[in-house]
Amino acid sequence: MTTVVLTRPKGKNDRLAQALCQLGVQSVELPALAIARTFTVLPQDYDPQGFDLLIFVSAQAAQLYLEALTAAGKTLAAGTRIATVGAASAQPFYQQPQHSSWQLIHPPASHPRQDSEALWVLLQPLLPDVQRVLLVRGQQGREWLSQQLLGQGKILTRCCIYQRLAAQWSAKDAIQLQPDLVKPQSVVFLLTSSESTRSIYHNIVRLGWESLWQQAQFVAIHPRIADCLIELSAFTPAQAAAQIHVCAPTETAMLEALRSVALP
């Protein structure tokens, strides 16, 4: 039986694990990263009323910002422009009762790219009316979107609302996985960021499982993550084509990709 390794931060894997179980697919939860809030009450410097556009790079950033905003006793005003890098990243806003009063901008769920580049295309018509931009993100991340905004002369404020801490898998964690790793192609790793991919790989190396890693299957939610995996693992083109499967970063797409790999 194939085992799916769910590697998102703790608390983010439950729905996917339940859905896989209903399909008869076994899964284990081994988070690659832990999320630590930078603050719980929104500082005045990041008050949404001081900006023409708010950009969020992940659903995690959006959710933590909303919670910090509420803790500060504030709300998003009607007409607030809110941009996210994908449809999944916008979900925390759509779950708010007043979401219809905001201007939500993101690539549609059907778009093949759910990333900064796709969002940048959508932002082009708005740029003449935008001067002050708040970019809400983790402490580490790509600088591409920041560079585009600065290149257009925008006043950019970065709000680092969380940090990602690499998780170190314990011997107890490893016991969950070891019986499956010794069987070729019986493990599928879900990879949801380049940073988490590096963390997973470092755990594999520390545990001495590099040769077994070379036989595993992988589902990555962006081609950039697949490229990171190829670089880390020194996969040949043939290995990459056979072992890496790229899907959209939605729960539905991840579930379908994992199902198709685990139950070919």
Score class of each variant (00 low, 15 high):
161 I>G: 06
2 T>K: 15
153 G>E: 02
105 I>F: 08
90 A>R: 13
29 E>R: 05
144 W>Q: 03
171 A>Y: 07
19 A>Q: 09
39 F>P: 00
259 R>T: 13
41 V>K: 12
24 G>E: 07
9 P>Q: 10
36 A>M: 05
150 L>H: 07
4 V>W: 13
246 V>M: 01
189 F>P: 02
177 L>Y: 04
87 A>H: 14
204 I>P: 00
55 I>F: 10
14 D>S: 12
16 L>C: 02
225 I>F: 05
107 P>I: 11
69 L>Y: 05
171 A>N: 13
120 W>A: 13
60 Q>L: 13
212 L>Q: 15
90 A>Y: 11
243 Q>I: 05
202 H>T: 08
39 F>S: 10
173 D>S: 06
98 Q>K: 09
78 A>I: 03
57 V>F: 02
179 P>V: 11
144 W>S: 03
101 S>F: 08
169 W>I: 06
110 S>P: 00
114 Q>D: 06
41 V>M: 00
28 V>D: 06
84 T>V: 06
230 I>H: 01
47 D>W: 02
113 R>Q: 15
26 Q>G: 08
176 Q>V: 05
4 V>S: 11
207 L>Y: 06
58 S>H: 07
158 R>H: 12
13 N>S: 13
146 S>C: 04
130 V>S: 04
221 I>M: 03
148 Q>W: 04
141 G>K: 08
142 R>G: 12
28 V>Q: 11
144 W>A: 12
257 A>L: 12
134 L>I: 08
214 Q>L: 10
244 I>P: 09
149 L>S: 07
61 A>Q: 10
251 E>N: 14
250 T>Y: 13
194 S>M: 10
220 A>D: 04
127 L>P: 05
245 H>V: 11
219 V>S: 13
252 T>A: 14
15 R>A: 15
232 L>K: 01
123 L>N: 03
193 S>F: 02
26 Q>D: 10
172 K>R: 15
76 L>W: 03
203 N>F: 00
105 I>D: 00
27 S>E: 04
256 E>H: 15
77 A>N: 01
5 V>C: 09
257 A>F: 01
98 Q>E: 12
98 Q>A: 15
115 D>N: 13
11 G>H: 07
31 P>R: 09
2 T>R: 15
125 P>W: 11
111 H>A: 15
94 Y>V: 10
163 Q>G: 15
245 H>K: 15
225 I>H: 08
166 A>G: 02
233 S>I: 01
82 I>K: 01
7 T>W: 01
167 A>K: 14
247 C>Y: 03
169 W>H: 05
143 E>I: 01
143 E>W: 01
220 A>L: 04
43 P>I: 13
187 V>H: 07
132 R>I: 07
253 A>V: 10
33 L>E: 08
6 L>K: 10
228 C>Q: 11
105 I>P: 03
